[in-house]
Simulated assay, not measured.
Amino acid sequence: MIRVGLGYDKHVLTEGRKLMLGGVEIPFEKGEAGHSDGDVLLHAITDALLGASGLGDIGSYFPPSEAKWKDADSKLLLKTCWEDVKKAGWHLGNMDCVIALERPKFLPYRQQVIESIAGVLGVEPSQIFVKAKTGEKLGDIGQGRAVEVWATCLLEK
């Protein structure tokens, strides 16, 4: 059996926060506003995996209304959900992600981010791909006010 999952997340960029993408801190003057550490890439990946497995979504696992998740490490959130997905008998075929971000340029950090995600999931880096697109100066993304991510995964049982 195979299933496809789609995850999505968007966060406002604000001063005074770290820009976290895939568990890697990217040097920049702004970071994601969010209840946890705001890592939109890991949040979208978590939702893709949970959706494909039929186990829920990140909000049902870690409600933002609960103070214990304030500033939580998104790698830990992903790892917790991934363990449940594996216990349900699923394994990852591949994961493909798109980051919409005007600045900073993502390419210099891509391999480090891929390896970080693969490390959290315990899979080969070749099973993960991440690419970035700009907003071409249009909308929240293009004006540098937000970062947005789409993640798809293929789970096999």
Rank of each mutant, 00 (worst) to 15 (best):
E102L: 01
G23S: 06
D57C: 09
L21T: 05
S36P: 00
T14W: 02
D37M: 11
P27N: 08
F106W: 00
K105I: 07
D37G: 14
G89R: 08
T14P: 01
E25P: 08
A48K: 00
L107F: 05
A72D: 08
I45S: 14
I45W: 07
T46S: 15
K30L: 09
G56L: 13
T80L: 11
I45D: 02
E15V: 09
G54H: 07
K18G: 00
D84A: 10
E15R: 11
S60R: 15
E29V: 02
L21Q: 05
A44F: 08
P64H: 13
A67C: 03
D84N: 11
K87H: 06
A33S: 02
P104S: 03
G93Q: 08
A67K: 12
W90D: 06
Y109E: 14
H91W: 12
V12C: 03
G93D: 04
D84C: 05
L42N: 11
P104W: 03
K70S: 12
W69Q: 02
K105L: 04
Q112W: 02
G89Q: 03
Q112L: 10
K10P: 00
Q111S: 05
Q112G: 12
D57N: 15
L77I: 10
C97N: 07
I26V: 13
K86Y: 02
V12P: 02
Q111K: 11
K18F: 11
A44R: 02
P63L: 00
A88V: 02
P104Q: 09
G22C: 06
G59M: 07
G56R: 04
G7S: 06
T46I: 09
R17N: 12
E15Q: 11
C81R: 06
K18I: 12
D39M: 01
K18D: 15
V24Q: 09
K18A: 14
E15H: 04
P104A: 11
M20V: 14
W82V: 10
T80S: 15
L21R: 06
A67S: 06
V40G: 01
W90C: 07
C81V: 13
L77W: 11
H43A: 10
L50M: 05
D39C: 13
V98T: 15
E83D: 10
G54R: 13
M95V: 14
D71C: 12
Y109G: 00
D39H: 12
Q112F: 04
G16D: 08
E66G: 14
C97V: 05
S74E: 14
L76G: 09
G31H: 02
V85G: 04
W82T: 03
E29S: 12
N94W: 05
Y61P: 07
S74P: 09
G51M: 02
A67R: 13
